[in-house]
Amino acid sequence: MSDTRRAAVLGSPIAHSLSPVLHRAAYRELGLTGWEYDRFEVDEAALPAFLEQLGPEWAGLSLTMPLKRAVIPLLDEVSPTAASVEAVNTVVLAADGRRLGDNTDIPGMLAALRERGVQQVERAAVLGAGATASSALAALSRICTGEVTAYVRSDARADEMRGWGERLGVAVRTAPWADAAEALTAPLVIATTPAGTTDALAAAVPERPGTLFDVLYEPWPTALATAWAERRGAVVGGLDLLVHQAVLQVEQMTGCGPAPLGAMRRAGEAALAAR
């Protein structure tokens, strides 16, 4: 392609984002020489004006916190996947000017799990109750045949998780964070908490753990992921999620595919190693 096409990731803070590394690696592999991908510090207040000033060269946007929900009223169409968790992380800017919102985090989670051989589980545990936890419940609604236990720090968070479970069709039981060590016996454990939160659980990893999906990618590996791997449990990391959701974004924004998963992952690993 000779004409310049543009895409970018928006959020606040945004300097840490690996999205430019991943998308640019995809463009190189796909031969999209006219494509550019940048990052912009944009908060909720600045988002409407940012969208309004975009020209016809813009193809798409990746969104991170705190914009995933704030963008919804500014869109012309929202996919059922994004609507199910009220979170949009992908905006495709159509040729006719429409703004189309989607969520690639949820299918990205499922793809990352499939890559480790996890197709279906009879029960699962979720550590945490933030925005990523609701996406985890949405993913589990498609592969978990039984109960999901969410370990949370407050009654309000417990109510939220049960509410998401009802909305997404998942049987959710909540338990206090003080009991989080018992979560580690589940066939699939999804940790959605900030850095350091699960470190104290590393000593409680069982002899034969199932699969751990820790959504962090920096710092990596976490203490819990290290202990899990030492016990020969399967570990899915935040970079796996980031790459799989970016693959879907590249394909939607460019119309080209399949996006080069391996090249994007290698680029992400190299960027993290250089930090």
Rank of each mutant, 00 (worst) to 15 (best):
R69F: 13
Q252D: 12
L63P: 09
F213M: 08
W177Q: 00
A225P: 09
G257C: 08
L140R: 07
G163F: 10
E41Y: 11
E251G: 09
L10M: 10
A7G: 15
A181V: 10
A7Q: 10
A129M: 01
H244F: 14
T193V: 15
E122C: 12
I14S: 02
A274Y: 12
L184N: 01
P219V: 00
A158N: 06
D76K: 13
R28N: 13
V91D: 07
G233S: 01
E166H: 12
R123K: 13
P20G: 04
Q252A: 14
A70L: 03
N89T: 04
L67C: 09
G196M: 01
A133Y: 02
E44M: 07
T226L: 12
V9E: 02
A175C: 09
P66N: 00
G97Y: 10
R265C: 06
A181T: 11
S79T: 12
T211N: 01
A227N: 02
L100H: 12
T81R: 15
S79A: 09
L75E: 10
V118A: 03
R6L: 14
W177A: 01
T197Q: 13
P209H: 08
G268A: 01
L224V: 06
D38I: 12
A181F: 11
P221H: 06
D155P: 11
R266M: 11
W58Q: 01
V85Q: 09
V170D: 07
L140P: 04
G108Q: 00
G268F: 03
A200L: 10
P48W: 01
D102A: 08
P176D: 08
T193K: 08
A195F: 11
R232E: 14
R98G: 10
E52A: 15
V243Y: 05
D155N: 05
P209M: 02
A200H: 15
E251W: 05
R123G: 12
R24P: 08
G169K: 09
S12T: 07
V121C: 02
P258W: 03
R142H: 08
V71W: 00
Q119I: 13
A138H: 04
L212R: 05
L140A: 06
A111S: 13
Q245L: 06
Q119G: 13
R24W: 11
S135Y: 10
L272S: 03
R116E: 13
P194V: 06
I190V: 06
E115W: 14
E36H: 14
T64P: 01
E230R: 15
L241P: 05
V247H: 01
P219I: 07
T149P: 05
T90F: 08
L224Q: 04
R167K: 11
S134K: 15
D105F: 08
A82W: 03
E166Y: 11
L54F: 04
W58C: 04
P209D: 08
L241I: 00
T185D: 15
M253D: 02
E44P: 00
P221C: 02
G55Y: 09
G128I: 04
T174W: 00
P221K: 05
A178Y: 00
E147D: 14
F213V: 03
L127D: 03
A129K: 03
R99I: 05
T193H: 08
T81S: 11
T4E: 15
V92N: 07
V118P: 03
V215I: 15
G108R: 10
S12E: 13
F40L: 02
A156I: 05
A125R: 06
E122S: 14
W177C: 02
L51Q: 07
